[in-house]
């Protein structure tokens, strides 16, 4: 099944992501499908977005397989800490993943709270 994303859907979701970036201080937000196709973005990037989406979807899927292997439903936190940039992965729906880049001085806990509330807003626009 192919997916056609309407113009107003892109505008609404990217506005939510932009507001999230401004409120939270995160650097960049990307929503991708689990096949590694970027769907919505906000923030500034100096890297290849297609490659980030492909690697993130693969990373998330691999982690999920590890969870299945050790009889866990899924891991509640998927997060990488860097010296200059951190990256947090969150499942939005069964088929959609959100990737947030943020500076190490930002609070991970606070960011996760904001991502949780964001999740509901996004689902209300794109559906499940």
């Amino acid at each position: 099944m192919n997916t056609v994303i309407r113009e107003d859907t892109v505008t609404k979701v990217e506005k939510i992501l932009q507001d999230f970036i401004e409120e939270s201080g995160a650097t960049y937000a990307l929503i991708t499908d689990m096949g590694g196709n970027p769907l919505f973005t906000a923030g500034e990037e100096d890297f290849d977005v297609d490659t980030l989406a492909a690697l993130s979807a693969a990373n998330y899927a691999t982690t999920k397989e590890i969870a299945n292997l050790i009889k866990e439903d899924n891991f509640s936190l998927l997060f990488h800490r860097g010296n200059n940039e951190n990256v947090h992965f969150a499942k939005i729906t069964q088929d959609i993943l959100m990737i947030v880049l943020f500076k190490p001085f930002l609070s991970l806990g606070l960011l996760r709270l904001k991502i949780n509330s964001l999740q509901q807003k996004i689902v209300s626009i794109i559906g499940n």
Binding site: N2, I5, E7, G35, L39
Partner: peptide
Amino acid sequence: MAIVNLKDKTIQIKI
């Protein structure tokens, strides 16, 4: 699953 974005006018295809 191809993605057609009507705002950015892009079609993404996976081979």
